[in-house]
Structure formats: C-alpha cells, structure tokens
C-alpha cells in the first residue's frame, strides 16, 4: 500500500484517449455511463483487480463520487476486488454444462493445479473459479480465461493449455507496470 500511495495509478495516454472516446458515446453529462467499460480497462491495466485507489482514480477521471464506483464494482461478477493469478480460469458449472461433465473438468483442474476452486497457486500463475452460465452451453465443458473461451474441453486440451501458460515469463506485479 505504501508504494501505491506514492505511485498512484495512471492510464497511459493511449488509454486516456480511449476513455475520452467512450465518454463521447454518451450525451453531455452522462459520462457515468462509461463506468463499466473504464473499470474493465482499469482492471486490465492495473494488475487484474480493482483496489480502492484504482477505483478512486476512475471516479476522478469520470468526475463522479468514489461511492458510485464502489457500488458498481461490487455488483458485477467480472470485477475482482482481491488479487487473482495471472491466468484466471473460470469453469462454467451451471446445469447445461454439468450435463456434459463440467464437474469432472473442475475436479481435473483442481488436481492438476493443486488448488481448490477460489484459490490461487503459490506462484501466482493460476486462479481457479467456477462461474455461472457463460453462453457456451452447447460447447460444454468450457472455461473462460481472459478474453477467450475454451470449449469442448478434454483432459488433453486442458493439459496443453495449462502447460503452455506455465511456460510464460513470470507475471509483472501490478505496481511495476505503473509509470
């Protein structure tokens, strides 16, 4: 926290231009409508989760009060309020996916990663989560990681994906990315 306090989050110039563009999609005085999209960007840029400081920064940017940002960040499931691993794997466990073996997929990932659902591996690479229907029911079992859906999962597919991710360089800490 001390480090963060002297090094407040700031979007890059490119990001700020994107924020301005999104704000411009709404009528004068309705800039709050840009909030959800800007929070997605902030989560992407500032280490995969939203700290109070990041939320305050977003409030400032959009000229709304911090509480309006907290209200939204705590309502929607895609916003992480606690740190997560570099790769957050979310396996759908709603009825239609269960019909096609989502429970076995979750069990396999737990065993492979050595963690339970809602836990993060010690090296900070993987967080495993279960999710409610992601709109891929016909291609179950499935999981989401970042911007991608991985569908019709088998143990072999999971092995290939996890092994490839594991070979990536160590993830940068959130504050290291900040100017």
């Amino acid at each position: 926290m001390e480090i963060m306090a002297y090094n407040p989050p700031r979007f890059s110039e490119e990001r700020l231009a994107q924020v301005r563009k999104i704000v411009g999609q709404f009528p004068e005085g309705r800039q709050k409508s840009a909030l959800i999209r800007v929070l997605h960007m902030a989560q992407e840029d500032f280490g995969g989760h939203l700290t109070a400081e990041v939320m305050d920064y977003v409030a400032d940017l959009l000229a709304i009060s911090p509480i309006e940002v907290y209200e939204v960040a705590t309502f929607y499931t895609m916003f992480n309020l606690k740190p997560v691993g570099k790769y957050m794997l979310e396996v759908c466990h709603t009825g239609p996916c269960m019909l096609r073996g989502a429970d076995k997929t979750i069990a396999y990932l737990q065993q492979k990663l050595g963690i339970k659902v809602n836990e993060t591996t010690e090296d900070g690479f993987f967080t495993l989560k279960s999710a409610e229907c992601l709109g891929a029911c016909g291609y179950a079992p499935m999981m989401q990681c970042g911007e991608h859906y991985y569908e019709n999962l088998t143990e072999e597919k999971i092995d290939a994906l996890v092994d490839a991710w594991q070979k990536q360089p160590v993830p940068p800490k959130a504050w290291e990315k900040i100017d």
């Binding site: 999609q25 409508s33 959800i36 999209r37 929070l39 997605h40 939204v72 309502f75 929607y76 499931t77 895609m78 916003f79 409610e132 229907c133």
Partner: peptide, 8 residues
C-alpha cells in the same frame, strides 16, 4: 456497443 460487467 456497451459491454456489461457480468450479471444475468
């Protein structure tokens, strides 16, 4: 286009 934040 306006994306949501994950809420049925």
């Amino acid at each position: 286009v306006a994306p949501g934040g994950g809420a049925y």
